[in-house]
Design a protein around this nucleic acid. Structure first.
Lengths: 334, 334
DNA sequence: TTGAAAGCGCTAACAT
DNA sequence: ATGTTAGCGCTTTCAA
């Protein structure tokens, strides 16, 4: 293995000088630099990252915790984050945590063991207070994605879920719907609460009374959506539209309605949330609210670099959701 | 930061002894071991992975190159591979290469720089000979996924694509179809060639003549599938079924046919390949050939561990594809 | 069974 | 602008 010492001998300079060249220090004459560069190339020298890390106590690595390595959401996020990180010649180490507080802590622990320089966290289960405490203990900077944690706003990349709920509901209202059911996510999650708040605000603005019986709490799964719309049926209420807090539930609900002979959108309009890939493929294609997932990844990457003292790019912290209108929604009474 | 030296002092032993305890050497008395373990716990000691790597020249890391971090295929594979690798207390570093020979080499280079102990490669663009050459240069073991490279069979996790093509075609034949078009992937890829061979074998077995005009080469994308079926139309041939070399093309083809008023499966049966998530959601749901992606990941992980000298689990190298029958295929003339 | 000490390859403070 | 050298924290001979 070629070491810095070999290079220094070959170029007849000291190891310190070679190190300076490697790290782009200004205190090297052009001539020497060329000589060293040539030697490095000649010998096929490759710096040993362990030695460097040991000496600097930096790993040139950013750690990322996501809920799941599969799945379109995280995939896109990882993709864009990696691109950014790699352009800065650093590595992204990704670890998945399977949605429990414990596994999330473990995932973080695992990355810390690897001495990552900075963490990008997408945590689902861990409650705010625990997360805040954790970050205080940590001796490295942290970026939090898709979540707005009080007192840590500056490190959070998030999206306005209240606005998303508002936009979705407003779209239905504009189509003339007045009885709008809502299949909500688990209410202990702040996402769900915000989307529900947006829903209420839109109703209020339109002068439509809020009817809590039109709300069903579910679990973000397709099965859950199916169960929710069944429950709605049993409550024996009439409604002409449904706002589901995510596409999975919307698709589940749609499937059940179709199997019951209810036409979507003619009898019931449905709007989802997240715009997952499937939204385009189901029949009818699903109107949804877009989350700029890929931007999340990009910005998280940028912020991570900034926090680890590399770059100074500006980072966009807050995003706004947007509507994609497809064929699962139409005018009331059409 | 607590070092091994702190622990050694606290436990009144030498650093060498502490090191032995850490690495589970047998040459430590039970008593001493207990004392050291207690000290480590007391002080909250965490070994420094850089120092260890520098001393051992091992990183406890496996590197993985995939085509794309997003996308269901790689997601699933990464997921299962990570699980395996992590259970062995090692890290998986994943890097994406965007489908060109150059970017694939770069990705590998990037991981080598990080001194990973072993590589898991999913390479699309790089031709066999180049890959073989590369592996010879490498001083670390390599696992190749979803590809069978001559002379390196022992390091390849692969699936029988010929059989997949055969199964798919046979299914159509069994439904009574005799004119079966084929939308093939890029023919320079061995996957495509194998699937095509399977197609021919099935036809031959059934005594159906092979008609090369029924074959269209395409590019594995939805758009490509659409274009291919258009092309087929223009050739003015009749066919009652299509075997597409992947689901994307099948879905594209199906979309176009539907928009032209051709009923699937009543007028034309379609079978895809890969069983991507969308296959279940399109209308009609797509009959397809399943690839055990998640097993690929698992086995690749296991093999990587084995090659890096950790475990001795047996690894399954060859997989067989299976058919999932859904609603895009039906009996001929039904 | 334990300890002393020589590296592993690099960085950075200090000296020149 | 360049060189000397003392670590960084750990593993691993070798000696005891």
């Amino acid at each position: 293995m070629i070491t810095i010492r070999d290079v220094s001998k070959y170029a007849s300079v000291s190891v310190a000088t070679v190190s300076r060249v490697i790290n782009g220090s200004r205190w090297v004459s052009d001539e020497t630099r060329k000589k060293v560069l040539a030697a490095m190339k000649e010998l096929g020298y490759q710096p040993n990252s362990f030695a460097r890390s040991l000496a600097t106590n930096k790993s040139q690595t950013v750690g990322m915790v996501v809920g799941d390595l599969s799945g379109p959401f995280f995939g896109e996020m990882m993709q864009s984050a990696e691109q950014i990180v790699r352009m800065a010649d650093k590595h992204l180490i990704i670890t998945s945590s399977h949605g429990t507080v414990e596994s999330e802590s473990e995932a973080i622990e695992f990355l810390l063991q690897r001495r990552v320089d900075v963490l990008i966290l997408h945590l689902d289960a861990m409650p705010d207070d625990k997360l805040i405490e954790l970050c205080e203990q940590l001796r490295i900077p942290v970026v939090i994605v898709n979540r707005l944690v009080p007192t840590m706003e500056e490190q959070c990349i998030s999206i306005d879920n209240e606005l998303g709920g508002y936009i979705a509901t407003k779209h239905l209202l504009e189509q003339g719907h007045r009885s709008i059911a809502c299949i909500a996510g688990p209410i202990y999650k702040s996402d769900s609460r915000s989307r529900l708040n947006g829903y209420r605000r839109a109703l209020m603005e339109a002068g439509v009374d809020y009817n809590e019986h039109l709300i069903v709490e579910s679990d973000y799964t397709e099965e859950g959506g199916k169960a929710a719309v069944k429950e709605l049926q049993e409550r024996n209420l009439s409604y002409s539209a449904i706002f589901a807090h995510n596409d999975h539930m919307a698709i589940g609900a749609m499937g059940w309605l179709k199997s019951e002979g209810v036409s979507v959108p003619n009898d019931v309009s449905i709007i989802g949330y997240d715009d997952i890939i499937m939204a385009r493929y189901v029949e009818p294609s699903l109107t949804s609210v877009i989350i700029p997932v890929s931007e999340f990844g990009r910005q998280a990457g940028l912020m991570a670099l900034r926090l680890s003292g590399e770059q100074q790019d500006n980072v966009v912290l807050r995003f706004k959701p947007e509507l994609v209108i497809r064929n699962s929604t139409c005018r009331y009474g059409r």
